[in-house]
Amino acid sequence: MKTVLGVHGIGMISVCGRGIESHADAYNHTQSADSSSPIRVCRVADEILKDRVTLKKMRRADRFSKMSALAARDAIDLAGLRVSDGGIRLGIVVATAFGPHRATFEFLDEILDFGDAGVSPTLFSHSVHNAAAAYIAIMLGSRGPACTVTDFQYPFHAGLMTAAVWLHEQRCSHVLVGYTEESSTPMDRILAQRHRGQPSHEPVLFNFSPYASKMFSEGSVFLVVTRPDQGGVALDLDRFKTGNDRISGLGSLWAAFKDGGLHLPQH
């Protein structure tokens, strides 16, 4: 099986803003940490998540789903993909390490505050890991396969491999594959405890990892990928080693996307 994908579109929501181009300047700007957080955490600006056009059917959706949907929408648009076209069989893969834990913790808050019988069904349904994939499918009207995968070490790579397998078996013509992590005050505390004594002020995209040692942040990135013989910028999964703290190679991917060549960093 070939582990090379053709990349046709990239969408990204990050602490640097919306769009992969904002990511390119990530390391040149100082990010402001969230003052409500017990540690230095860079969060996606709430304003970004108020795109009422893209998210018009997601007003009650959780933060994880909104970030995912915006990045997915941008990747689809950049690829110029019309999901309703007859020849398009789109698959959706959402990868994550921790999933929508903000909704999970809010649900636990409700149990503690109001009792087991007093919880919100909406909050429960958003705490399920595959809610984001469902929202994306609904937003795009995509009836193809959708899969949410979890891994604590290489979640994005797991997602990309899932996309490669689907393309190989021709289950899909295109796969919208993404990686999302969110922050929350409880998880910030947990990870801060784990990382005590390892201060760093350098923000790293999606460095929301139990294994990483730099500042925590959140965001979402999605790619539209096909088999390499269908064009796009070639992405060799054997070289694109992505831990959940290491997808900064996307900057290079974006540069290659614009320049027509690809020079991925080795991690």
């Binding site: 921790f98 999933g99 999970t104 913790f105 503690l112 705490s127 979890t150 409880p186 505390r189 947990i190």
Partner: peptide, 19 residues
């Protein structure tokens, strides 16, 4: 198994800030 939803763990975290 994907969710960190241990209620006793979370109760302690919420009360003390320690996990």
């Amino acid at each position: 198994a994907c969710q960190l939803n241990d209620i006793d763990f979370y109760r302690e975290l919420r009360a003390s800030g320690q996990a």
